[in-house]
């Protein structure tokens, strides 16, 4: 019995040593938390942490990986052609109008939602998720609406709702006059809020 126990204990110790040897091969990437590329880099270096899953041959995996990359490329190209088709079919360049939302530099308030009306008709009402808001704060630009408008003068109403860093609600509404000519019309809306809870809405066009 004691032999068996010794055997059990030595197995435990052996496993522990094996894991220790595996861990020895670690090499850490300091940017692990900073970006995905470094995660890949860290994983590359962590290849010493082999588990039995790695016994699988790498060759077919690589080949499959290459095929996956090829199909991604093909699907991206299909997506591009489909976008062109849809744009031509649904938003011809003569009548196309697109509205973009961005935040002012260093904007600290939390944007909850934006409503856009064109000629009194509600065309977009967007409630922001955390990820979308972060993307806007980092400088991303959201295309909130794409549609069609005849040439001539139109009325644009923009309403925003959100919260200030102090927790107070803020909201604002502005009306603009836009001139649609022949050709696509791009309208940029830049949002900000001051400490008193007043929203600033700036609109520019192209």
């Amino acid at each position: 019995m004691s032999d068996l126990l010794r055997d059990s204990q030595s197995t435990v110790a052996r496993n522990s040593r094996r894991q220790r040897r595996e861990r020895r091969a670690l090499f850490f990437d300091p940017f692990h938390h900073r970006s995905v590329w470094t995660l890949v880099l860290a994983l590359f270096l962590l290849s010493g942490l082999a588990v039995s899953a790695e016994e699988v041959s790498n060759a077919p995996m690589r080949s499959l990986d290459e095929q996956v990359q090829e199909i991604k490329s093909d699907v991206l190209s299909i997506a591009a052609e489909l976008s062109r088709l849809e744009e031509k079919l649904l938003y011809p360049s003569d009548t196309q109008v697109a509205v973009f939302i961005s935040l002012a530099e260093d904007e600290k308030s939390r944007l909850d939602s934006v409503r856009i009306q064109i000629d009194g008709e509600l065309v977009a009402h967007h409630i922001y998720s955390f990820k979308e808001l972060e993307a806007l704060k980092r400088g991303g630009v959201q295309r909130i609406y794409t549609g069609n408008l005849p040439t001539g003068e139109h009325r644009l109403d923009v309403s925003v709702f959100g919260k200030l860093p102090s927790g107070r609600d803020f909201s604002g509404m502005e009306t603009f006059r836009i001139e649609k000519e022949v050709g696509p019309k791009l309208i940029g809306i830049e949002l900000a809020a001051n400490e008193f809870g007043n929203a600033s809405i700036e609109v520019g066009d192209q």
């Binding site: 940017f31 590329w37 001139e179």
Partner: peptide, 27 residues
């Protein structure tokens, strides 16, 4: 009703997405 300024989405500062790049520029 306000008139629209002549140029679009100007004046938006963007810190590029790239890892390690802190370049800021008007978009």
């Amino acid at each position: 009703m306000r008139a629209v300024s002549p140029h679009p989405v100007l004046g938006i500062l963007v810190a590029l997405v790239t890892a390690g790049s802190a370049t800021s520029m008007e978009l």
